[in-house]
Design a protein around this nucleic acid. Structure first.
Length: 561
RNA sequence: UGGGGAGUGGUCUAAUGGUAAGACAGCAGACUCUGACUCUGCCUAUUCGGGGUUCGAAUCCCUGCUCCCCAGCCA
């Protein structure tokens, strides 16, 4: 699918490193999520990169490492969902599962080393004071009054911090770097803060926890990661990443390389905002099919292959960009077109009575499961005098180029018969069309007339006497504007699309779809791809989620008037 | 008027001093028992602007502009 064979700048660099014999020819990457939320499509890009690069190179390895250094935000539920999602996407970390929290003792030892070198100190300023001392983007910061505490005093204080003698926020351990650095990250950044919170893995063993900048580079070094790939916003953390490792003289010094994170139109990607949508119940949980989380996409009916292909297609660079949602949609269409079995389902039913069809006759007609893959076989679909067709497939006054059903017009019922509309039945009060009367050509069984006459329109249908009733959920984009976060003055939730979910509860499925379809992808012919919602398996009637509609040039044509 | 990044068709990505390529979108058509799929053709960039070096510049130099990130005891 991706015809552009040129490697991206990261793969090119890795290839060069490998060719130059760097890192003894090893290649080790890592995917380092914080277990503070569910994975989304943006993480998929990183997962495909890190695991992909490892898979592509002989001997390459990718670690899954939980960056669990902040117990106030992290939960096991998240860690579990992350593992499930990475696996579902088709990647395997083997026995390379790590937790930053497993290194807490080593981090602590490194911190003490820093103190002994005179490169770290306990600062007892309040958070507000620290901010004031930090200076601004254009003014240098000022040294903390605690900056010159003796090594002995720092050691003592740090020990007492660990022992739990101090309350949250009263002291932190800081690196002693340069309060005048133009890079704010270098103005004596925090290394350890006190958090009397129990951790999802270490319980109450610790009351002080390392900061990201300290923990991440050390974790990478401990695991002997060769290429530490992260997003652009960490670019100006790289000097700090390098400072810690150089200052401590770790046996190994990984290379951090940054790339642009994924943005998509009509959605938000930050975990913080997704969490808000979940907590404020604006969506139906992390796996709401409108969410661009991995679990949401899964429940929507996306396939791992489609997501992987998408990640490959969009490329990799350092340029801020926003990918059109249509690209993602095309990727599932492509996968499902090839792999999803076809079925017929009527979403907005209109009854059709075939007047010249025997009252009690039921015929089992043969329908192919996939037009291009005969090996996927056929199925039998019952046909009788009363059927449903799609309301949109009939128009009393058809406009030009409309070649579906209309009074006096003949169309084909897919895999069945040619029928001609003879009369319209309507509600005398409302005038609403309640049913159509048609006649069929008995000689057109299967869908072709022996005289070879052509009909332009083919409609899908379901037997009104045999079909299974179902609920179908149609999803539209979650937000109204391409970039819901564009206007910083407006809450992004103001941009939510009120019509992002449409529930159709009077849908009719061909009988083969009535039960046991959960977790299956189908194409409902002429409509789109649908996924039998596993979360609704116990509902009274089957529930199908629309993954994505078929490309609809007729709708486009209509949209022009 | 600090620091770090980035600017190539509508959108992504490639071309790494040798004369702008691919994909998606769009448009037109062919095919069709899915107005799908597939196929064909077309369209859109003198590469953010301005200078310079060079036989030759998207690539190198100078200069200007625009956008993104950084002032958490978040990651």
């Amino acid at each position: 699918m991706n015809t552009n064979t040129a490697p991206d700048f990261i793969r090119a660099r890795i290839a060069a490193d490998l060719a130059a014999g760097k890192n003894d020819g090893r290649l080790v990457t890592r995917f380092p999520p914080e277990p503070n939320g569910y994975l989304h499509i943006g993480h998929a890009k990183s997962i495909c990169l890190n695991f992909g690069v490892a898979r592509e190179n002989p001997g390459g390895v990718c670690h899954l490492r939980f960056d669990d250094t902040n117990p106030t935000k992290e939960e096991v539920e998240y860690a579990e969902s992350i593992m499930r999602d990475v696996r579902w996407l088709g990647f395997d970390w083997g026995d390379k599962l790590f937790y930053a929290s497993d290194y807490f003792e080593r981090f602590h030892a490194y911190a003490i080393e820093l103190i002994k070198m005179g490169k770290a100190y306990v600062c007892s300023l309040t958070p507000e004071e620290i901010r004031a001392y930090r200076g601004t983007l254009t003014e240098p910061g000022r040294d903390s009054p605690y900056r010159n505490r003796s090594v002995a005093e720092n050691l003592d204080l740090f020990a007492r911090m660990r022992a739990g003698e101090f309350a949250d926020g009263t002291h932190i351990l800081r690196a002693k770097i340069d309060m005048a650095s133009p890079n704010l990250n270098m103005r004596d950044p925090a290394i350890y803060r006190i958090r009397k919170t129990s951790h999802h893995r270490t319980g109450d063993r610790w009351c002080l926890y390392p900061m990201y900048d300290f923990a991440h580079c050390l974790s990478d070094a401990i695991e002997r990661i060769t290429h530490s790939l992260c997003t652009l916003e960490f670019e100006d953390h790289r000097p700090l990443y390098d400072w810690f490792l150089d200052t401590l003289g770790t046996p190994y010094h990984p290379q951090q390389i940054e790339f642009a994170r994924l943005n998509l139109t009509y959605t938000v990607m930050s975990k913080r905002k997704l969490l808000q949508l979940v907590h404020e119940r604006l969506v139906d949980g992390w796996d709401d099919p409108r969410m661009l989380t991995i679990s949401g996409l899964r429940r929507r009916g996306y396939t791992p292959a489609a997501i992987r292909n998408f990640c490959e297609l969009i490329g990799l660079s350092k340029k801020d960009s926003r990918i059109d949602m249509g690209v993602l949609e095309n990727c599932v269409r492509a996968d499902l077109d090839e792999n999803a079995p076809r079925r017929m389902a009527v979403l907005k039913p209109l009854k059709v009575i075939i007047d010249n069809y025997p009252d009690d006759l039921v015929e089992e007609l043969t329908a192919e499961n996939h037009p291009k893959r005969p090996e996927l076989g056929t199925r039998q679909v019952p046909f009788c005098k009363e059927i449903y067709i799609e309301r949109d497939d009939f128009l009393e006054e058809p406009p030009p180029k409309f070649f579906r059903l209309a009074p006096g017009r003949e169309v084909r019922l897919r895999f069945a018969y040619l029928v001609t509309c003879q009369a319209v039945e309507r509600d005398p009060k409302s005038g609403e069309i309640t049913a159509l009367h048609c006649t069929y050509d008995p000689k057109s069984r299967g869908g072709t007339a022996p005289d070879g006459r052509k009909v332009k329109g083919t409609l899908h249908w379901v037997s009104a006497r045999h079909g299974a009733r179902a609920e179908v959920r149609l999803y539209d984009r979650l937000f109204l504007s391409e970039d819901p976060e564009a206007d910083k003055a407006v809450d992004f939730k103001q941009n939510l699309n009120p019509d992002s979910l449409t529930v159709l509860s009077d849908c009719w499925l061909e009988p083969s779809l009535g039960q046991g379809a959960e977790g299956q992808n189908y194409q409902f012919e002429r409509q789109g791809y649908f996924y039998a919602d596993p979360a609704s398996a116990s509902a009274a009637k089957p529930v199908f989620n629309r993954t994505v509609g078929l490309r609809d040039t007729w709708a486009k044509e209509r949209g022009r008037d």
